[in-house]
Simulated scan of single mutants.
Amino acid sequence: MNPAPCFEMVCDMNAFLGAIIDGILYSAWLFIIAVGLTLIYGVMKILNMAHGTFYAIGAYMSVTLLGWWFAQGLPPAGSIPVMIVAALIAGTIVGLVVERGVLRFFTGRDPIVLLLVTYALFLILEDVVKLIWGVDPWIASDPVWTFGNVYLGPLVYPTYNLIIVVVAIVSGGFLTWFLQFTAKGKMLRAVIHDPEVSQAMGINVSRWKVSAFVAGSILAALGGAFTAPTISVAPGMGVEVVVMMFAAVVIGGLGSIPGTIVGALIVGFVRSLAVHYWPEVEVFSIYAVMAIVLAMRPQGLFSGVELRKI
């Protein structure tokens, strides 16, 4: 009996299992970043081009605090709270500065104007990052090795990757709970659906817009903070996530959290399968899926038709 066919079958199964696991891990990472963009658009109707830079600032803040943490000889397990704190600091500061310092002056302007403004902010913040942290790469990989490895069948992954999945699940679960089952969440949903009526009912719409923008910024920074230990943090890293982030949001439907979950999963699995089986078309495959979805449903999978007020 020739064992070669059986061996090839096992290898093919392992490769497919690896593609599925990589797709899940990538989708979780992408969701953390993209859901912040979804929240901002849902409340403010701003397609924030600077969102990728918020992600980068969170990563830089994370490696900065992690470097200090490990330099003090503090427990490695404490690196997780440190990254959360880094995201809170970075997201809050950049969110408040951008919204209060710039975007509030463009309230009610044409969406194209807001898109151009956020693109200008993206370019400005990219240079600000270089001025603060320089152009050399920063590395803080200690958290990845701290938690060891986990065996998923025949494959070995850093346990840290599963922590990112947990962060994505907790972030999505918390947002869903807040919006669906709390009084303040219902107020925010009212602002999303009809800000004018909400204002007439006594809801401080401006305050909710600021809060939503800061929350979305924190989520972008959270994605960067937890990504930082797995990569070399360098200028331009925010640009790299923009395509995938917007693809997930557009496929799922602008302003829809369930849509963002599905969009992130679609992008994650398509990219993973392309990387494993046809790496030459990795980026093209994302554009192709996005084009197919928009051709059949221009508003995205989970977004209703937006009514225009006359």
Results as ranks from 00 to 15, higher is better:
I139L: 12
P137T: 06
I203L: 15
F178E: 07
V210C: 12
N161E: 09
V283Y: 10
T182E: 12
L273P: 00
W133A: 05
T159C: 03
S272G: 06
W68E: 03
V275T: 02
A274K: 01
K184T: 15
R189A: 15
A215E: 09
R104Y: 13
A90C: 06
H51A: 06
A4F: 11
D12M: 09
I310F: 14
E240G: 00
F106R: 07
G108K: 02
W138G: 02
A183K: 13
T176V: 13
P235Y: 12
F178Q: 02
F147V: 06
C6F: 01
L30W: 01
S27T: 14
G236W: 00
I112W: 12
I163H: 03
G263E: 07
P195Q: 11
F70S: 03
V197Q: 04
Y41R: 06
N2G: 06
V281N: 08
G185A: 02
Q72S: 03
T64W: 08
S141T: 13
F106M: 11
A19P: 09
F174E: 12
F181Y: 14
L254E: 07
T53S: 14
I84W: 11
V281C: 04
W145R: 14
F31N: 13
I231Q: 04
F54S: 12
T227R: 05
K45T: 15
I203V: 15
M201G: 06
E126H: 00
P143L: 02
L125M: 11
L65S: 00
F54R: 06
P75I: 01
G58T: 10
M244K: 09
H193F: 15
S79Q: 09
S211V: 00
M201F: 12
L39G: 05
S141A: 10
F31M: 15
A59C: 05
A4R: 13
L307N: 14
M296D: 05
V113D: 08
G153E: 09
N149D: 14
A291Y: 00
V128S: 04
I21W: 04
R109P: 02
P258F: 05
I40N: 06
A291S: 12
T227A: 12
V210Q: 09
W133E: 02
T53D: 15
F284T: 10
V43D: 08
M296H: 07
P5R: 08
K130I: 09
V270R: 03
T118D: 11
G259E: 13
L125H: 02
C11H: 09
F54L: 15
D12C: 12
P143D: 06
S79F: 01
G95R: 02
